[in-house]
Design a protein around this nucleic acid. Structure first.
Lengths: 262, 262
DNA sequence: CGTTAGCTTGAATGCTTTCAATTATTGTGG
DNA sequence: CCACAATAATTGAAAGCATTCAAGCTAACG
């Protein structure tokens, strides 16, 4: 159906079928990466009612001003949040990966303040917000896991503010690539330094507060340095430490080891 | 003790003494602005154990990497969150006003990903995180109010990403001033178009991803247009609608009417 | 009344954008 | 399987917004 779907997504598709908890197991895995959940908690999540739906690149599942009643969870593919300025300028304010819940905030805020769109072909589960709310009431550990998810996303947003506000174009791009590397590693569980990132240069521009033309120049510069490769229309990371050096990347803000307590 | 304290803060100091619920009443009022709380809920919050502490401009109450055990709540004065890039560049990633809880995230994330510092002379209540946690368990409405607080801050962060990523310097500044107007209005309850904003030009630069020199030029431009005034070393908003026009400001992202449901 | 932090200003520089075309890739329909 | 359409990538040159540098000014504080 598409070459837009990343290798990661394909791996996810395949892997998921071998797990015990059904389509939502990837959500459970994501939550487990930062929060403890008992077997019963996990089963309760897996048992949430849901429909599976496929969307194509650019399609929207939520628009600013909407009042949502379902929470989409990414099963495969990438999605993003965007805001649009009155002059048409677009800013991507978050990137979501497989296992991420896309709209937990609508549990508590009644009007969406941004759009949610698909970056690639996507498979998602749609969960009724009411069911999630009941689950959070019945199972405090689940409520806590959801809250931590929200907090980590907020932390990433703060780092993006620093990235866009205070780093030059090359460092911004390198920093984003480092972040994606780490986040994808977490869900793919196979640490490879070879990731395919399905972002067009225009999307990179909207992510980083730059123009496509300038992104192009930065991408080529990173390529010339051997830090990235560019198969077909996406990026691969070839030299992570080089990217980390350029952007002074430190992954603390991802809170990946939250479980360890201290 | 200082001319740094804004008129708002002074008004707050005065107002607080007339309320029933003690020092934390301002926190309760803030939560009530977006979440329903029963009288019992409010009393339970007011009864939280706490110490009152004063800090001066620039002082820090939390540093990146710290593991907090207390949650500071602003009683008067302004504070901010900041992140520092490796080259020394500083980005202010959030501004906190009286009534705001400064570090709820440490309830769930074990290491701070940013610093919290005081913008003005500040009076704050320090609440043990353990006490807050118990309260959230005992009183779901309080837990919900706290979560909404966190979500609204995240929404503001997204708008800042759009602001810094996609608006020019003049619009960025105007947008920030509009936001502050609305947020201050909420807690001051007296809607005046005349607010004193105690930000130096250097701080404005760190808020908006610009340099102090350029901020100076933009401030003077807004002044020349009659949109702002500049008593001593702060700003006042003289023409809010002009600022809103410059920045195409829309306050939806502040979620101020969350209570109304639809 | 000096000291200091903050504000102001001009000029030169530069990073990024804008504009305008061209080239490459992917997907589609015949 | 090829031609065509559409999207994405690329490139050079000019323009502009913002930064940097450097210096002088102002106002608050002790």
């Amino acid at each position: 159906m598409s070459s837009d779907v990343t290798r990661l997504s394909q791996w996810m598709d395949h892997h998921r079928t071998r797990m015990e908890l059904g389509p939502l197991s990837i959500l459970i895995r994501k939550l487990l990466s930062h929060s403890p959940l008992s077997t019963a908690d996990q089963q309760a999540i897996a048992a949430l009612p849901h429909k599976v739906r496929r969307l194509q690149p650019g399609e929207s599942i939520l628009r600013e001003g909407d009042q949502a009643e379902i929470c989409p969870v990414l099963l495969s593919g990438f999605a993003y949040r965007q805001k649009v300025a009155s002059d048409g300028g677009r800013q991507i304010v978050a990137l979501k990966l497989p296992g991420d819940a896309l709209d937990l905030q609508s549990l508590y805020l009644h009007k969406a303040d941004h759009d949610i769109r698909m970056l690639t072909n996507v498979e998602m589960a749609l969960l009724p917000l009411a069911a999630i709310e009941q689950l959070t009431i019945a199972r405090p550990a689940v409520a806590r896991a959801i809250l931590i998810d929200i907090l980590v996303e907020a932390s990433i947003g703060r780092e993006w503010l620093l990235n866009i506000g205070r780093r030059n174009a090359l460092a911004r791009l390198a920093h984003l690539l480092c972040e994606l590397h780490d986040r994808v590693s977490d869900i793919a569980s196979e640490t490879s330094e070879y990731f395919e990132i399905p972002l067009t240069q225009e999307q990179l521009a909207d992510l980083l507060g730059l123009t496509p033309v300038h992104i192009n120049r930065m991408v080529r510069q990173l390529e010339k340095m051997g830090a990235i490769g560019r198969p077909s229309r996406s990026l691969t990371i070839l030299n992570l430490s080089e990217l980390a050096k350029i952007s002074n990347f430190s992954s603390a803000y991802l809170h990946r080891n939250n479980l360890s307590g201290v």
